[in-house]
Computed example of a mutant assay.
Amino acid sequence: TLAADGLDSADAERVTGLHAGVTFARRLTSAPANVLNPATLAREARRLEALGLDVDIWDGPDITARGMGLLAAVAAGSTHGPRLIRVTIPARGEATRVLALVGKGITFDTGGYSMKPPAGMYGMKNDMGGAAAVLGAMRALADLRAHIPEGTEVRAYVAAAENMVGPDAMRPGDIYRAANGLQVEVTNTDAEGRLVLADTLTVACQEGATELVDLATLTGVKISALGNDIAALFSSDPALTDRLKTAALAAGELVWELPLHQPYLKAFQKGTLADLKNSDMAPAGGSIKAALFLQQFVTRPWAHLDIAGNAARDENATGWGVGTLVEYVLGR
């Protein structure tokens, strides 16, 4: 419960809108995986229609028809099929900018056949912290849409799937076609987040996004590098980098820029059968290599926030990222 006293109407509106978004994100992240799966996450996103947002949802056959072979592969081991969720706040006037907020929505991650140890698997209901953040940002922006710059359309894309084992689950060595036509060999089924994001980033570009920011609990080595308080920021565009740093500072959320060191991509490049592999099985530089993998699927200015460790603290969901995304969209 939030009481906002002593504020002018503009500040009170901003605080209460942000509170609603952070609360929504925390509620989603806190839900156990037997309650929140791709289908129920999609239903939660559908609730935003009541606030005047446009919500579109694609299920398994739709995802396959759109050529999203990587998202379909990650979800293949689960009885709960994948969902691609798109939430839109249309622009006031003619749209001259389309901002895409992309979230990793792995509602539970066993690691697949590259199975996590028990200690590593506990807490993997939080592997959709990126999805919760982008949906929470849209919830906040629903209340603050009058402050979104004129001509700016905002879209949230969520790739929702469970990474499970089963008769149809992807295996190490399998090769799948991505939405942009690249062939990707799965060497590690526990490197699934980059797969679902790759297809979703491609679709967002195909649908006209002029700028993209993705959030994902992507790599454990990010926690080794920066801990749980600071998110890793990667970006292909200096101006976008500066705006995100300013937004994070205004939101009280800490980010640190890491380099997109292109020589590291060689570890993921293939010479036969496939164009890329999803992991080289080496932790050194793992966060950078994961970001470089994602970069192969974007054609517009793009930034990636690796929020592993940020989405929950001592089993309490934080809603990390909602504030940064709201400030970024509002451009204050």
Results as ranks from 00 to 15, higher is better:
residue 80 H to Y: 10
residue 80 H to M: 08
residue 81 G to R: 03
residue 83 R to P: 04
residue 84 L to T: 08
residue 85 I to N: 04
residue 85 I to G: 08
residue 86 R to P: 10
residue 87 V to G: 10
residue 89 I to H: 15
residue 90 P to V: 05
residue 90 P to Q: 09
residue 91 A to P: 12
residue 91 A to L: 07
residue 91 A to G: 12
residue 92 R to F: 09
residue 94 E to A: 14
residue 96 T to S: 15
residue 96 T to I: 13
residue 97 R to I: 01
residue 98 V to W: 01
residue 99 L to R: 09
residue 99 L to E: 00
residue 100 A to S: 14
residue 100 A to C: 09
residue 101 L to H: 00
residue 102 V to Q: 00
residue 102 V to M: 00
residue 104 K to Y: 04
residue 106 I to D: 02
residue 106 I to L: 15
residue 108 F to D: 07
residue 109 D to N: 13
residue 109 D to R: 10
residue 110 T to K: 01
residue 112 G to W: 09
residue 115 M to S: 07
residue 115 M to A: 13
residue 117 P to M: 08
residue 117 P to S: 15
residue 119 A to W: 00
residue 120 G to W: 00
residue 122 Y to H: 04
residue 123 G to L: 13
residue 123 G to S: 11
residue 124 M to T: 05
residue 124 M to R: 04
residue 125 K to I: 00
residue 125 K to S: 03
residue 125 K to R: 14
residue 126 N to C: 05
residue 126 N to S: 06
residue 127 D to Y: 06
residue 129 G to Q: 05
residue 129 G to M: 03
residue 130 G to Y: 06
residue 132 A to V: 02
residue 134 V to H: 03
residue 134 V to R: 03
residue 134 V to G: 04
residue 135 L to P: 09
residue 135 L to T: 13
residue 136 G to A: 11
residue 138 M to W: 10
residue 139 R to P: 02
residue 139 R to G: 02
residue 139 R to V: 11
residue 141 L to M: 04
residue 141 L to P: 02
residue 144 L to A: 09
residue 145 R to Y: 05
residue 145 R to C: 05
residue 146 A to G: 11
residue 147 H to G: 01
residue 148 I to W: 03
residue 150 E to Y: 03
residue 152 T to R: 10
residue 154 V to Q: 11
residue 154 V to R: 11
residue 156 A to P: 06
residue 157 Y to M: 09
residue 157 Y to K: 13
residue 158 V to H: 06
residue 159 A to N: 11
residue 159 A to Q: 11
residue 162 E to F: 06
residue 163 N to P: 14
residue 164 M to V: 05
residue 164 M to I: 05
residue 164 M to W: 10
residue 165 V to T: 15
residue 167 P to T: 13
residue 169 A to W: 02
residue 172 P to V: 02
residue 172 P to K: 03
residue 173 G to C: 02
residue 173 G to W: 00
residue 174 D to A: 14
residue 174 D to E: 13
residue 175 I to W: 01
residue 177 R to V: 15
residue 177 R to F: 02
residue 177 R to E: 15
residue 177 R to W: 01
residue 178 A to F: 12
residue 178 A to E: 07
residue 180 N to E: 05
residue 181 G to M: 07
residue 182 L to T: 00
residue 182 L to M: 08
residue 184 V to G: 07
residue 184 V to M: 05
residue 185 E to W: 07
residue 185 E to S: 07
residue 186 V to L: 04
residue 187 T to I: 15
residue 189 T to P: 14
residue 190 D to Q: 10
residue 195 L to P: 06
residue 195 L to S: 12
residue 196 V to N: 06
residue 196 V to W: 09
residue 197 L to N: 10
residue 197 L to I: 11
residue 199 D to P: 04
residue 200 T to H: 08
residue 201 L to C: 09
residue 202 T to Q: 13
residue 203 V to S: 01
residue 203 V to C: 06
residue 204 A to I: 06
residue 205 C to A: 14
residue 206 Q to D: 14
residue 206 Q to V: 02
residue 207 E to T: 13
residue 208 G to F: 06
residue 210 T to M: 01
residue 215 L to N: 03
residue 215 L to G: 04
residue 216 A to V: 07
residue 218 L to I: 10
residue 220 G to S: 03
residue 220 G to V: 03
residue 221 V to N: 10
